[in-house]
């Protein structure tokens, strides 16, 4: 299998997940099998096929530039796990 534990660890940082040792092992094994399965798409020649990112081909959908109502601040912040009267709060961010 080409997918290594180190690869999986790197992906877990990209996806902002923290996986324990045992979880990493299981994940490496399971992802390995799934990736092994999806590899079969490689057997299809698709050089002249346009990618299909949307289920329906639509275009030019716009809204007019008109002001609408915003949420009252307490409603906007209501679901925040940590906040003060005005803002969301996170641990001090330094040069990140």
């Amino acid at each position: 299998m080409s997918l290594t534990r180190a690869d999986v660890e790197k992906v877990s940082l990209l996806g902002r997940l923290r996986l324990g040792d045992a979880e990493l092992d299981t994940m490496t094994e399971q992802m390995g099998r799934i990736v092994g399965y999806i590899e079969q798409l490689g057997e299809l020649s698709t050089d002249n096929v346009q990618p299909m990112a949307h289920a329906q081909e639509m275009h030019n959908v716009f809204a007019d530039d008109a002001l609408g109502a915003s949420l009252p601040r307490d409603a906007a912040l209501a679901n925040a796990p940590k906040k003060d009267a005005e803002c969301y709060r996170v641990p001090a961010v330094l040069g990140e």
């Binding site: 992906v11 997940l17 990736v35 299809l44 698709t46």
Partner: peptide, 27 residues
């Protein structure tokens, strides 16, 4: 598992092989 799979399929070096190819097979 799905976040991991999706992150992997879109990551640098794999996006063409997996994600883009899947969009083509979708068509």
């Amino acid at each position: 598992r799905r976040i991991m799979l999706g992150t992997y399929a879109l990551s640098a070096g794999y996006a063409d092989k997996y994600y883009l190819q899947a969009l083509k097979v979708r068509r």
